[in-house]
Design a protein around this nucleic acid. Sequence first.
DNA 1: CCAATCCATGAATACATGTTCATGCTAGCA
DNA 2: TGCTAGCATGAACATGTATTCATGGATTGG
Lengths: 122, 122
Amino acid sequence: MGQRHEHTRDLSGGITADLARDVAQTVQALSTPSRVRILACLVKSPCTVGELAGEVEMEQSAVSHQLRILRHLGFVVGERHGRWVHYRLHDEHIATLLEEAVYHVEHVRVGIVDPAPRASAS
Amino acid sequence: MGQRHEHTRDLSGGITADLARDVAQTVQALSTPSRVRILACLVKSPCTVGELAGEVEMEQSAVSHQLRILRHLGFVVGERHGRWVHYRLHDEHIATLLEEAVYHVEHVRVGIVDPAPRASAS
DNA sequence: CCAATCCATGAATACATGTTCATGCTAGCA
DNA sequence: TGCTAGCATGAACATGTATTCATGGATTGG
């Protein structure tokens, strides 16, 4: 345990336009508060749609719509158990991605406005 | 050398709605192909607006607009040198965040559609 | 100074998207 | 077999946003 992953990809060679498109599309799964909350819930444990709706304070319909998006992006999978559908993260890498994103937000406090450059340097 | 960072944040305790909002807003910087390409360029080296426009195949005006967003999110900083404005990443953590995102897209191939759950399990 | 270059910005537009509302489908219970 | 609970889905709507166009500010070179 305590296994080491770097989880990074060298970008010194640049990236293609196609890869940029894929990155943007994937990352977009985390670009809305509702989906972040849904995924954060699923990190803790699998949930039904109704449970998710309660935890993230959204209507059931809205949750279903967002779950559909997350399914299409390969972030979550749903499995039917009787009348309920249990949703869970597709794999542990999804949890890692979210954990990394949260880490960056908490530690590298971004979001501070930076004015347009006016003064000359050098 | 070879220093170890985990770069993750334990989510077993859940996250607040405010944190989810911040995560979504921050991650949104990487949720568009144009901004991903701009940031990927800046990972390699600082660039002027005109250089960025050439590399990412966008008009100068569009690049300026996106740079403004990235500035406000604390992702990049611009410094005036004569007639040019040199843009660079705010710090190396931004590069790490992008590198991690690209890593996930390349290794954990998401984006495969998953049908709505129909069959019953158990 | 004047012109040219580099960049920022506001308005306008086209487009994507998140939510709600209404409805339909599936599975279990009486 | 109705009937209800849990969930999915389509339409409508409001909102956000990325780009283009036009323009203005800043700076240097002539």
